[in-house]
């Protein structure tokens, strides 16, 4: 990797750029497949009779669903001239439960771009800020996640 900075003014202009909102219908079948894939038998996610007696009044999606790739929304395209990518992690804040039948609108923007030196060389950290809203207009959750190109 050269010593020259990968971060250009062109790239900096991408900070704050949003992708097209993505609308996702939260189907019950999706919930079933999701908890089956995790291997999570919690009746809050699968047993209507049990869930009805709780404060939720019915089954809900585990909050971890928002970490799934299909829930990250449309990320704005960005060209970074580094060959490899890694998912870094992130932080999520949850406000409202997600129920089967909900329609979520996901908005994702580039929150920040930061150049750092890592053990494998030069890297650009890409931060994405995401907001999930339901059909009532309630903010269900927000997140700031990051990945790196290196």
């Amino acid at each position: 990797m050269s010593e020259a900075s990968v971060m250009t003014d062109e790239l900096r202009k991408q900070i704050g750029v949003a992708g097209e909102p993505l609308v996702v219908e939260m189907e019950k079948g999706m919930l079933r497949k999701f908890v089956d894939a995790i291997g999570d038998p919690n009746p809050l996610w699968s047993d209507e009779e049990h869930a009805k007696k709780t404060k939720y009044g019915g089954i809900t999606f585990p909050p971890g669903i928002l970490a799934a790739i299909m829930m990250v929304g449309n990320r704005p395209p960005i060209e970074i001239p580094l060959p490899r990518g890694l998912d870094g992690g992130g932080e999520w804040e949850f406000f409202e439960p997600i129920r089967p039948g909900d329609t979520l609108t996901i908005e994702c923007k580039i929150g920040d771009l930061v150049e750092r030196q890592i053990s494998m060389g030069k890297a650009i950290f890409i931060y994405h800020d995401t907001v999930w809203k339901n059909q009532k207009g309630q903010v269900v959750a927000t997140s700031r996640t990051y990945g790196l190109k290196y």
Partner: peptide, 10 residues
């Protein structure tokens, strides 16, 4: 990595 997050939520 995101399956590990789902495990931690579980």
């Amino acid at each position: 990595g995101r399956l590990k997050i789902a495990f931690l939520v579980q």
